[in-house]
């Protein structure tokens, strides 16, 4: 609290203050927290840093933001890459910073995040939430926008040689979309693969540190250009007969994301 009070007036410009204040935020309690630990005042400090990363470091460009509904529940489903969850941060910022009806999406994060000192609280304070179906369901009931990377660590931890190859998607997001009558907005992120290219996963070190992977990669993200393309919303009725039907629908979403990745690669003139 005191750290926040010290940092905020010294770091947060008025524009960021206004951007965050303009975002619709439900469920914020008397002490400024929502049930998932989001704290707008802390988020402003993080947003200042993310804004700089988005605009100046990664020079990110977002297209198709009009496909994000202005209000109501939505699942934003994308490809995961880059060892660190930088893609989630950039996608969330793009939606929060859009000109018309901005909103702060909640990103589903890996379950081990809260075990790391500071990281868990920091990620929660800017809207990150443990990737648990119960969390997701409760947030959809509260009409939130949620960013999900169904590949999980299979996507983020993959080596550079597998770049832009979608790994297996979990089916959880599709079940949630069907059960909660939620539109899916596919998103293709291009550039994050190059921010932290990994040659291999040093498994013994990962086991020792109790983390899912330990990449042989640059210590800091490289300043690759990032292109984010949002696709048209996809809707699915809750009428599947078996899990095979769900898998077909998941493949449809994957195909849409593949198309958006191809668009991003075509848009990119240079990696850095």
């Amino acid at each position: 609290m005191r750290t926040r009070q010290f940092l905020k007036p010294r770091t947060v410009p008025r524009e960021v203050d206004e951007i965050v204040d303009s975002l619709p935020m439900q469920n914020i309690g008397s002490q400024g927290y929502d049930p998932w630990g989001m704290h707008p005042e802390t988020a402003k400090i993080s947003f200042t840093a993310v804004r700089w990363l988005y605009e100046h470091y990664f020079r990110a460009q977002a297209f198709g933001l009009e496909h994000i509904p202005d209000t109501g529940r939505v699942l934003i489903i994308g490809n995961h890459s880059g060892q660190l969850p930088m893609d989630g941060v950039l996608v969330s910022f793009a939606v929060a910073n859009k000109a018309d009806s901005p909103r702060l999406p909640r990103s589903m994060i890996e379950r081990w995040f809260p075990t790391v000192p500071f990281l868990g609280n920091l990620v929660n304070s800017v809207g990150g939430v443990i990737g648990d179906p119960k969390n997701c369901a409760k947030m959809l009931e509260r009409e939130e926008a949620i960013v999900v990377f169904p590949e999980g660590i299979r996507g983020s931890g993959k080596p550079y040689r597998l770049r832009y190859q979608l790994q297996r998607f979990g089916h959880g997001f599709m079940h949630l979309a069907m059960e909660h009558d939620t539109p899916i907005v596919p998103v293709g992120v291009v550039g994050c693969e190059e921010t932290m290219p990994s040659l291999t996963n040093i498994k013994p070190l990962a086991r020792m540190l109790s983390v899912p992977y330990f990449p042989l990669a640059p210590l800091l993200p490289l300043p690759a250009r990032v292109f984010i393309n949002f696709g048209k919303p996809m809707r699915y009725a809750n009428d599947v007969r078996n899990e095979q039907d769900v898998e077909w629908r998941v493949e449809e979403v994957k195909d849409a994301i593949r198309g958006l990745i191809d668009t991003g690669i075509a848009q990119r003139k240079s990696i850095f």
């Binding site: 005191r2 469920n27 309690g29 002490q31 049930p35 630990g37």
Partner: peptide, 22 residues
């Protein structure tokens, strides 16, 4: 339907925090 972080709660209650290694 109201929430507070533990360290914020300590400070609101007028406690000084003793940080322990985690």
């Amino acid at each position: 339907d109201d929430y507070v972080a533990y360290q914020d709660a300590l400070q609101l209650a007028g406690c000084r925090r003793l940080f322990l290694p985690s």
